[in-house]
Nucleic acid binder design. Structure first.
Lengths: 338, 338
DNA sequence: CCGCTTCGTCGAAGCGCTTCGACGGCCTCC
DNA sequence: GGAGGCCGTCGAAGCGCTTCGACGAAGCGG
């Protein structure tokens, strides 16, 4: 492997000049720069990451903590992860993958041993123990999600409260008065995953503001769970004309069960999904949906981390406004006798 | 941050002694070791990863290249990835996440800049350009998959040929004579993803050996694709009594379409799935399946990488034998007139 | 009791890079 | 036309760790 000294010799300059060509931290004449760059290309020089980290105390690596439990929606997690990786690359950073189950220890390990410049943490819970740990690190961190007390840590996420309100507004505008929320599985609520709670809050508030008759129901994402959920909804909110589904796994089954019970979407019942765009489009019929913009959130998380590293000012909490796209699963309610 | 010098001073020894306590490369008296360890604990010392990498030319980081395209089965990819991460941790390594779309450049970047000790590459295609690149690197690599010409690179994977044979053997043993393969989507074949081809090969050979009447059909994983696929199968292989499904996305829909067409599983038609265990168990009825042991394969990939790093001998290609577990979706064929 | 090995520890030399201060040479401005 | 600046480059000092050779002390056999 060529070193910076080899390059310097080949270009007839000093190592520090090569370094300055690379970093651009001092002016270098066009001539010299070209000679150096030619030497770099010819020797196939790549700076040694460890040496660089040692000398500059910058690693150009971000830690990304992902949950590995399977009761969260895996494809969505993966969308966030890939968004973070691609965004990091555009900022000339790489990504070190940590799993949530290493907990606090994993964060401290990579931070204390200076393996990463900053941390991005997904799937934070209401009062996640990891948050105090993050506060103590010298590296900045960005959460994807919104804990109870985010003081001192920057958070980015979709504004799930607004998302719920948006879904209800759309349905109300179509004339719906009786709307049910098919939520995530009970396990998700139990864990204190705040996006579920925030959506619920938004749903409740929106419902009150719009004067709707609503109910909410968690839903286990298997055939039985979906059936039970829909049955409960029919029992507790007879004449329901619209569903908001905040549960990717259950989505397809909800549609199938509605069909099985003889109800047509959207003629007999409207459905608004809360899910990534491609999920909404890959259903038997294209669903009206509030997008979960994993790509944007991931990109924003990385951009925010970069800001922090540069010492630029940053909003402590940044919630992206939801976008609802009307597709084929919503329509005005059927006019019924009664 | 405390350095090794701080620890040395606190323990009243030289820095090199601390280093030897940490690495165990030279004998250290129990007394000294304890004093050093106490100092380490007290100061919360973590060796600086960059400095360590620079001095030892070992980073204790593995690169993992995952596909980010969505036409592969995301949850399965994620299973591999988490398996690799957890296994790496047990070997005291971390994982740097690269995406396949950075291609050859990404591999070279992390290798040349000495960010990683070894590379693990998923989703290799028949004659993947990345393979030549890997051969040129000074770091060893392990492929999850099996390219055309694996010479010089170690590969691990499930033995998909044997898996197909195993599925057929099970069905033949039950007395089935007409069996169809519902394969991955055409895109997967087109890409030259070898596991699909290997399964197909095994299916064809097994079919001949067992004297079965079979056919194979790729399947687009949406409602229409599944319908078309099943219709083709019924047309081309009338009286088919069993299906082998090698397509996680389509699996649930296949079952539903069979039911919709009035066929009961396994009374009227048997189904063997090729998928991870948990997928087989989370279907409306527990499916007889050949497991895709993502966890084992990921773990093996890491273990193999460690072997290579230690200079221990390694089999060039290691294909894990498949395991078929009989559950509720297979039974002898119905006795019909004719 | 002497010389040889083994054990436990130290000191110093790097690993490859960044960065700070220094220093010529050139331009500019009065 | 000389003082003052800026531009472009160099040299050297580290960053924090590992590792090699060296060296006393202790243990052993003859």
């Amino acid at each position: 492997m060529a070193t910076i000294n080899d390059v310097a010799r080949a270009a007839g300059v000093s190592p520090s000049t090569v370094s300055y060509v690379l970093s651009g931290r001092r002016p270098i004449s066009a001539q010299t720069r070209e000679r150096v760059q030619a030497a770099i290309a010819e020797l196939g020089f790549h700076p040694h990451a460890g040496a660089r980290a040692l000398a500059s105390s910058r690693t150009n690596v971000l830690a990304l903590v992902v949950p590995l439990r399977t009761d969260v929606n895996v494809p969505v997690i993966m969308q966030f992860a890939t968004a973070v990786v691609t965004a990091s690359r555009t900022h000339n950073h790489d990504v070190l993958l940590l799993t949530k189950d290493e907990g606090t220890a994993g964060l401290e390990r990579v931070a204390h041993s200076t393996m990463v410049d900053a941390l991005i943490v997904m799937d934070v819970e209401r009062d996640d123990v990891r948050i105090q740990a993050l506060r103590r690190l010298k590296q900045p961190s960005v959460l994807i999600g919104l804990p109870e007390d985010p003081a001192g840590i920057v958070c980015v996420d979709l504004d799930f409260e607004a998302a719920a309100a948006e879904a209800l507004r759309h349905l109300a505008w179509h004339g719906h008065r009786k709307v049910a929320l098919v939520g995530p599985s009970p396990a998700v609520y139990k864990r204190g995953t705040t996006y579920a709670e925030r959506f619920l809050t938004g749903f409740t508030i929106g419902s009150a503001e719009l004067g709707l008759e609503t109910m909410t129901h968690p839903c286990e994402p298997d055939r039985e769970g979906v059936r039970a959920c829909l049955a409960d909804i029919d029992a507790q909110l007879p004449g329901v004309t619209a569903l908001v589904v905040h549960n990717e796994e259950a989505l397809r089954m909800v549609l199938e069960e509605l069909q099985a019970s003889g109800r047509r979407v959207p003629a007999d019942i409207s459905v608004v999904a809360v899910c990534p765009r491609d999920v909404a489009l890959n259903m038997p019929l294209p669903l009206t949906s509030v997008d979960i913009p994993a790509h944007d959130v991931g990109g924003l998380a990385v951009a925010t981390a970069m800001k922090l590293l540069d010492g630029r000012p940053t909003e402590p909490v940044r919630l992206l406004p939801p976008t609802l796209v009307e597709r084929d699963s919503t329509a005005p309610p059927a006019v019924t006798a009664g």
